[in-house]
């Protein structure tokens, strides 16, 4: 009941904000509103008890994507110049689609209904077998990292591919030439060093963020979290440092070659676990063969692949941020 009240409340706000994002012509406004959007979404995930998703949405949606959006915005104009004509066909199409979806969901099971089919087929098996086969308290981690580990492998490669794509786009266009001398320009626009308070507080918090990232990384078996969230948190720490101290120093802290190699290295680590389990006589990604005791093998496998995921995600965020900050605008 309470869940439904809160959820409805948040979802209504979500719709309003979404419409506002669509209607605004100022891209800066859109960026800020989408920050609100992800915060609402994260709160809603939390109300629905999906803590892992909420954590991801919080870190990436509310924290890092705002920074990256602003980096992109610095490279373009601030106003959306799409022509006002021709909005009817898309509007009609999407309203029709929305109508169809709503029509279809009248038949869907109620929220939180334990007798819904979704909760009857594979979910009970996961809940029942996880303690016995994998023995981690967080079933979400068990499903993501082991039962459907092949999907997660795929997602890591999606992230890797996306990194290649972003680098292909951002590395392609030459940095804009500015009339000011390069060094002076960098000094004035690159950092917040002369703002005393952000500098002190920001630098003070960097280690805590990274520490918390490590906690999320290794605590993922027990509570919400795991490689994705941890990678994003560590990257957030590095991004904060680069914002305060300037992109140049940020790139000294984590060099660009390092972050881009980290992306590939994470994906490589994950695949290597699969190949290792093949070599040791199991199926691809069958962690049980990695140690003498199958459950212990599962623990080991999950630990290593989560580390791989964390490396890839942290690497990709830092790489993209560096790519933006290097463009001579920051």
């Amino acid at each position: 009941m309470m869940t439904i009240v809160f959820s409805l409340f948040l979802l209504t706000m979500l719709v309003i904000v979404a419409v506002a994002i669509l209607r605004t012509e100022n891209l800066f406004t859109a960026v800020m509103l989408s920050g609100i959007f992800s915060l609402i979404m994260a709160a809603n995930f939390f109300v629905l008890d999906a803590a892992d998703v909420a954590l991801t949405e919080a870190v990436i949606g509310a924290g890092i994507s705002t920074v990256l959006f602003l980096g992109a915005l610095a490279l373009t104009a601030e106003y959306d110049r799409s022509p006002p004509v021709g909005t009817w066909v898309p509007l009609l199409t999407s309203s029709a689609l929305g109508g169809v979806i709503i029509f279809a969901t009248f038949q869907a099971p109620r929220l939180g209904d334990p007798s819904a089919i979704v909760h009857q087929h594979v979910a009970p098996w996961y809940l029942e077998k996880t303690p016995e086969l994998i023995d981690v308290p967080n079933v979400v981690t068990a499903v993501l990292a082991s039962f459907r580990g092949y999907d997660t492998l795929g997602e890591v490669f999606v992230v890797f591919t996306a990194c290649i794509g972003v680098m292909a786009l951002l590395g392609r266009v030459r940095p804009r030439r500015d009339s000011i001398k390069e060094g002076e320009f960098k000094k004035a626009t690159d950092n917040l060093r002369h703002h005393l308070i952000p500098r002190v507080v920001g630098k003070m918090l960097v280690p805590f963020i990274v520490l918390f990232g490590l906690y999320v990384q290794f605590h993922g078996d027990f509570g919400p979290g795991g490689g994705f969230q941890a990678g994003a948190l560590v990257a957030a720490g590095v991004i904060l440092y680069s914002l305060v101290e300037g992109g140049v120093r940020g790139r000294e802290l984590v060099p660009e070659w390092f972050s881009s190699v980290l992306v590939a290295l994470g994906a490589f680590t994950y695949t290597s676990v699969g190949v290792a389990s093949m070599l040791m006589g199991g199926r691809f990604l069958d962690y049980s063969v990695l140690a003498h005791d199958p459950v212990h093998g599962q623990h080991l496998g999950i630990l290593v692949i989560e580390a791989g995921v964390g490396m890839t995600v942290a690497g990709v965020m830092i790489t993209i941020f560096h790519a933006f900050s290097r463009r001579g605008i920051r």
Binding site: L153, F157, F160, I164, V261, A264, L265, A267, F268, T271, S272, G274, V275, M278, G281, G282, R283, F284
Partner: peptide, 25 residues
């Protein structure tokens, strides 16, 4: 498990294994 049994996974695994290597070296 013989190599023959592993063939289905190998089709993809070979490619996924090589891609990061090709990127790093």
């Amino acid at each position: 498990m013989t190599l023959y049994d592993q063939l289905p996974a190998l089709v993809v695994a070979v490619l996924l294994f090589t891609a990061p290597i090709a990127y790093m070296l």
